[in-house]
């Protein structure tokens, strides 16, 4: 969610039961504008909040130009001092899904996540799952970074046409984006994963007649399994659409139809809901 629009969260994301309070929104807005200035970002976004036991983590990101791979993430526990998020490591990606405990709220804490939830039986060859010696301890800072990455991969959504692949390969925001229409919004095909595409480049082009490679270079969310893992709702008399990911409860995307306003925010405990196949 763009930091200058945080004051509107109540009416936009309130339908999902989350918002940023007035005082907090002003605090975040101002501290993020300062962050934006320090890092020479073109735009600065509030990504969301991960609830911890002692403290909550607030996550923000910004980019200079490239809005997909050029994002730089920051986190903070008091919304005032923003710390640079470490790079996602392989070890972090391996161990984060295993961590079952809540975030403590102290980025320097190191926990043995392997012991509480070993991913495979001890007599099995570990080489099959992870080459190299199996790491067992995870720093909370790394866990946060990997978690944000995991959530982005699964549940970060942009409406079709909002991002634009420039001829030089850069992904930039489409300044001429005018929003998607009501009929388009009824299909999940109109929403794209905001991640580096995992499918072949022509998969999306072949499934639609009005293809345009500059716009359809990302994966659509309608191919996610199981069918029904996205909750699409129309609100305010079909003037707004919200998308919830059942895999990451707390991730909410909104888009005001026929307008360039869209955004998403995660407020939750940072736990993936693996029960989805039982639910739908």
């Amino acid at each position: 969610m763009e930091c200058i629009r945080l004051i509107d969260t109540l009416d936009l994301l309130g339908h999902a039961g989350v918002c940023v309070g007035t005082e907090n929104s002003q605090l975040l807005q101002n501290s993020l504008i300062i962050l934006q200035n320090e890092n020479h970002f073109r735009k600065c976004y509030y990504w969301g909040r991960i609830n911890g036991i002692q403290n909550d983590y607030h996550v923000a990101y910004g980019y200079e130009k490239e809005c997909l791979s050029g994002r730089i993430y920051f986190y903070s526990t008091n919304c005032l001092d923003w710390l640079l998020m470490p790079k996602v490591t392989k070890c972090g990606r391996f161990l984060t899904p295993l961590a079952v405990t809540r975030f403590e709220g102290d980025p320097s804490i190191i926990t043995n996540v392997y012991k509480a939830n070993p991913p495979f039986p001890p007599n099995e060859d570990s080489k099959r799952h992870y080459d190299g010696p199996i790491p067992k301890e995870l720093k909370e800072e790394d866990r946060l970074a990997s978690l944000v990455d995991l959530i982005n991969e699964d549940a970060f959504v942009v409406p079709r046409g909002a991002w634009f692949k420039a001829p030089n390969g850069e992904v930039i925001e489409n300044p001429g984006f005018e929003g998607i229409t009501l009929t388009e919004a009824q299909h999940l095909k109109s929403f794209l994963h905001g991640r580096l595409p995992q499918q072949k480049w022509n998969t999306n082009l072949l499934t639609r007649s009005d293809y345009n490679y500059a716009v359809d270079f990302l994966d659509t969310i309608d191919t996610d399994v199981p069918e029904g893992c996205w909750d699409l709702q129309f609100l305010l008399g079909c003037r707004m659409v919200t998308l919830h990911s059942l895999y990451w409860p707390g991730m909410t995307f909104y888009h005001k139809l026929n307008s360039p306003h869209y955004g998403s925010m995660y407020i939750g405990y940072g736990k993936k809901n693996l029960d989805v196949p039982f639910m739908v």
Partner: peptide, 12 residues
């Protein structure tokens, strides 16, 4: 509730 970050949209 708005102060505490629980969303109840005004219009609704």
């Amino acid at each position: 509730f708005e102060q505490t970050g629980v969303g109840l949209p005004r219009a609704e």
